[in-house]
């Protein structure tokens, strides 16, 4: 009798404890971003914070990095999240190879890991025996959409140049590949391809020089909009309105340029929603849903003027 009473009391207190813990401990999601100095990721972070507030059923811990190449801080962030015992880690890896091992450790600790924005390297995943889905846009086919819009205007043999992102940055590489896909498919003449490190002023200088070397350029494919702005300014200074420019990202500053035709097109990959979507998917798995598999592509859209 006494024992039964004790057991009931114990059980109730346990239940109370558990529910109290649950009320306080909504699932915790650790979000690991890339450089928050990048407009794109800053918007993404804001989208995620709005999402947290709107849903209200999870707690968001977000970590960014100092700059594009500071991937060590991402690895540290994963380790800290493991220590804190988060329920899910949603990560946009700065390095598609270096991040595999720490994420494997997180999965072994029972944390749901969702990889978004930039896919982890398939080879390394195989090597480490990690099976992890990717949620994100196809940068390569996005760039090809912008490139195709340009190619359709120029026709076969059109002379184009590519302004690339940071050498070594995965999204930059994918976008350059997408542009080259266009070049191959439409038989364009790629006269030069150079990096301007994602930056407006550098793109302005680099493109001015390319234009001097190749005055017969007809089209420019820039791997992001910041660089496209630099190209547009270079064309204005050179007094050339016969050269078409496409960019990528659809940042606010190119709105007027698309509108008045100084830029032909850009690509929107809905960055603001991207982290939020990835978090929703992670929460579904945390709640007992099936594991994600393969490549869950997120929408991309070509933005053109009227």
């Amino acid at each position: 009798m006494k024992f039964k009473k004790f057991a009931v009391a114990a059980a109730t207190s346990l239940v109370m404890l558990a529910s109290a813990a649950q009320a306080e401990d909504k699932p915790v999601v650790g979000l690991i971003m890339k450089s928050l100095a990048n407009e794109f990721f800053q918007n993404m972070l804001e989208g995620a914070k709005a999402h947290e507030k709107q849903r209200g059923d999870y707690k968001l811990l977000a970590v960014g990095m100092q700059n594009e190449t500071d991937f060590e801080s991402q690895i540290n962030a994963v380790e800290n999240f493991i220590t804190q015992g988060v329920d899910a880690i949603v990560v946009a890896p700065a390095d598609s190879r270096a991040m595999v091992r720490p994420l494997k450790k997180a999965m072994a600790a029972g944390i749901v890991v969702v990889n978004f924005d930039v896919a982890l390297d398939e080879e390394v995943k195989k090597q480490q025996g990690v099976n992890l889905a990717f949620v994100g846009p196809d940068n390569r086919s996005g760039a090809k959409m912008a490139g195709d819009a340009l190619a359709k205007k120029l026709g076969k043999g059109g002379k184009v140049v590519i302004i690339e992102g940071n050498p070594g940055a995965d999204n930059g590489i994918q976008r350059a590949r997408g542009f080259r896909d266009t070049v191959a498919e439409y038989g364009l003449d790629l006269v030069d391809s150079r990096t301007a490190h994602w930056e407006t002023e550098e793109a302005n200088s680099v493109f001015s020089n390319m234009l001097t070397a190749h005055p017969d350029i007809q089209g420019v494919m820039a791997a992001n909009d910041s660089m496209a702005i630099g190209v547009v300014k270079a064309l204005e200074s050179a007094g050339r309105d016969d050269i078409m420019v496409v960019g990528f990202d659809n940042i606010d500053a190119v709105g007027p340029m698309i509108y008045d035709g100084r830029m032909l097109a850009t690509v929107d990959q809905f960055g603001q929603a991207m982290a939020a979507n990835a978090i929703s998917m992670a929460l579904e798995v945390v709640a007992g849903g099936p594991d994600l598999e393969g490549w869950v592509t997120t929408p991309i859209e070509l933005v053109v003027g009227k």
Partner: peptide, 15 residues
């Protein structure tokens, strides 16, 4: 000069 030339202000300028 940066602003006048490029008509933007960028927080990542000048790295």
């Amino acid at each position: 000069v940066y602003m006048a030339r490029l008509n933007i202000s960028s927080p990542i300028a000048g790295i």
